[in-house]
Write a protein that binds this DNA or RNA. Structure first.
Lengths: 158, 158
DNA sequence: CCGTGAAAGTTGAATAGTAAATTAATCATG
DNA sequence: CATGATTAATTTACTATTCAACTTTCACGG
């Protein structure tokens, strides 16, 4: 850990930018969660469905799924158990590595995904995407990308 | 709810901007949480401390604190109970409205805040603020502000 | 081959968060 | 001035998340 004795406090501008980012990310998650609720899904459920439905054979190794959804293995394991009970996914064992398991989208999971996705997209548009001028959105992406990279590095450095 | 039948899917650009925002907000929260961990605080704890320490008499009504931290009353109530057990805050009853309670920062809470804040600021700088050119940060704030306003409206519309 | 360490994944207990019901005080108005 | 609605906050029960411990399999150096 650094000494921090030489770290300047945030300027007013920085402070506001930071707070705004914070507020947007929290409020947005709440709103998306609420929009998903009528379909009986949480944000987490939805993200699992997205990842699996985009994957080869609609299946992913538990570890890969955990990595791509930025969750711990433990959390994913519980999550998949719940979704398995809900009939959205199932576990299948892996030939090539007998420690491994696949999480596989069931037909019901696939149908759910196809049914819910348009609503979710509409929600993301309404509460986020469509509120930017398109050049602003691109600027956002551009300036956020190095932050994401920085953070991903930190993360993988356990 | 709208029909969504006319909602266009996200373009590649939009998709990437959206994903990046999502990743940054999650990764960032994780990282900040990790940086606070050595001090025995969570992000939530810290935010309560910030709000109380900036408030008149280092105290806020439960409802106001809940509103400004964007939490439900129930969650805040649990949170304050925990922090009370940890000695960081205490509850005090309110003269003017006998239904009401203040959450008050204890001396220990105040000390903790003063001790931890510099580290937290350093963390926010290292993992977010300092990764932007300053005009980018201002652009971020500008483009995010209407989103925050939009979402706050939705929220208050119960 | 054999043993040792790392990797994949799960489990169970403890902690945190959500949701609905509950208590108690205040407000508003006929 | 009483009563029905609203507001403040908590409580209880339930669901989700974290954390540490554990099992099984794999990899690979001796």
């Amino acid at each position: 850990m650094t000494t921090d004795s030489d770290t300047p406090w945030l300027t007013d501008q920085e402070q506001r930018a930071w707070r705004t980012h914070l507020d947007v990310s929290r409020l947005l998650m709440h709103q998306l969660e609420r929009d998903l609720q009528p379909f009986g899904l949480t944000n987490n459920d939805y993200e699992i469905l997205v990842n699996l439905s985009e994957a080869e054979d609609r299946r992913l190794r538990m570890s890969d799924l955990a990595a791509s959804t930025l969750q711990s293995k433990s959390r994913l394991s519980h999550q998949i158990t719940r979704m398995e009970n809900a009939g959205l996914v199932r576990r299948e064992s892996c030939e090539s590595d007998r420690r491994g398991l696949y999480a596989v989208l069931t037909d019901e999971g696939w149908d759910t995904m196809r049914r819910v996705a348009p609503h979710h997209v509409a929600s993301v548009r309404r509460h986020f995407i469509d509120l930017f001028a398109s050049e602003d959105l691109e600027a956002l992406r551009t300036s956020l990308t190095p932050v994401a990279e920085h953070l991903r590095e930190r993360r993988s450095a356990l």
